[in-house]
Every structure is written in C-alpha cells, then in structure tokens.
C-alpha cells in the first residue's frame, strides 16, 4: 500500500511557515522565527533559480533532440546560456584567484549583448503600445475606448515642453490626471488587489489552495 506523505506534510509545513511569518508581523516574540523562515525562504529561492535554469536547459535540450520541433532557437539559447555561465564562472574565478573583481567579460556581455537587446525590445514595445492605443478605437469603438484614447493624448500633450508654444493648461490637466484620477483609481485597484492577496494567502495558510500537490 502506497502511503502519500508528501501532500499532508507539505500542507503542514506551508501552514506552519505561513502562520509564523504572519504572526511575526504583529507579535514581536515571533520575529526571530519569522527571520529564520525568511532566510530559509531566501536560500530556497536562490536554489530554485538554479533549478529553474537547469530546467530551462533540460527543456531546450529535449527540443533540440526532438527533430519535429524547431530546435534551432533552443540550440542558440543553450549555447548562449552555457557561454554566459562559463564567462561568469571565469570572472568569479578571477575575482577570487587574482583579486580583480571587475567582471570584465560579464560586463561586456551585458553591455553589448543583453542591454541592447532588451532596450531594443523596449523600443519595439513602445511601438506596440502606440499601435495598441490606436487599434483600441478599431476593436472597441465605445465611450471608454474614446476616453482612454483622449486621456493618453492629454497626458502626452501635457508632458511636452515646447518653448515656442506654451501649453500651461495642458500641463495642469496632465498633472490633475496623473495625481487625482490615476492615483485614486490605482489606489482603489490596489486595495482590491490587496484584499485578493490576503484572501489568496489565507487560502494557502488554511490548506485550501495547495499549489504544491505532491
């Protein structure tokens, strides 16, 4: 007979840690226990990052092995990951071995590969945002969409600081939009999200939600 210990044990640990961390916020005596739990959590999160990286590697190795799937991109990903990992280890070795913690190669990769790639993606995203703002009028031609569109225009117009043409009223409008309705709406949304977060956390503490189905 196969006994399932994992699920009850995981549930018990989850509830216990959750209660400890939660009580640590309100009960000073529980702060030390909370700290221990947080440290363990940090280590596990770091280990999880490594596990995630290896999982990423394994997935793309399978894709490379699978002739039906598009393994070319996976191959590039695996090569880039292993190369960056090797260069990072080399820089760490140099820092420990030679006392030269400049992380030259790692910085080079970041400066000349990762950062340009990501900023380029950000630029493309800017185009996508502009496009989606206009496409909204085509997808949902209603008052909300029109309002959304003109608020975007007003905020942009209020941001411009063109010396030739002064738009003081536009700046005031922008400031009012950003500071009153946007903040008020965002605060209301955040309150709702906070309540949802509390509910989600309590469900996990109660064992109702178990995303750790062992």
């Amino acid at each position: 007979m196969k006994l399932k210990f994992r699920a009850p044990l995981a549930t018990a640990i989850t509830i216990a840690v959750g209660l400890v961390v939660l009580s640590g916020y309100f009960i000073p005596a529980a702060a030390s226990l909370r700290f221990i739990s947080l440290r363990v959590g940090m280590v596990l999160a770091a280990v999880a990052l490594l596990v995630g990286v290896f999982n990423l590697l394994s997935v793309h190795f399978r894709k490379i092995a699978d002739k039906d799937s598009k393994g070319g991109y996976s191959f590039i990903l695996v090569v880039a990951l292993l190369t960056t990992l090797g260069i990072g280890i080399y820089d760490m070795y140099k820092a420990y071995a030679f006392g030269n913690p400049n992380f030259e190669w790692t910085n080079w990769i970041f400066t000349y590969i990762q950062r340009p790639v990501e900023t380029s993606l950000m630029a493309v995203m800017t185009v996508s945002l502009a496009y989606s703002a206009t496409y909204l009028l085509r997808r949902k031609m209603n008052y909300l969409a029109i309002g959304f569109f003109f608020v975007v225009l007003l905020v942009l117009l209020g941001t411009i600081s063109l010396s030739v043409i002064s738009f003081p009223i536009l700046e005031d409008i922008r400031s009012w939009i950003v500071h009153v309705p946007a903040v008020g709406g965002a605060r209301g949304l955040l309150l709702g999200i906070a309540l949802g977060t509390i509910a989600t956390g309590l469900r996990i503490i109660m064992g109702s939600d178990r995303p750790y189905e062992g």
Partner: peptide
C-alpha cells in the same frame, strides 16, 4: 496585479481582467 500592465492589457486584449477580477 501590476497596474501599468493592466493599462496595457486594456488596450491590447479582448478580455482583460481588471483589478481584483484576477483573484
């Protein structure tokens, strides 16, 4: 739950979940 992303979603997705609707 990311508010700026909700603004982006609103203009780009057919069925957005605004605010706590996700929860």
């Amino acid at each position: 739950a990311h508010l700026p992303a909700q603004a982006v979603m609103y203009s780009s997705v057919e069925e957005p979940l605004i605010g706590e609707e996700l929860f």
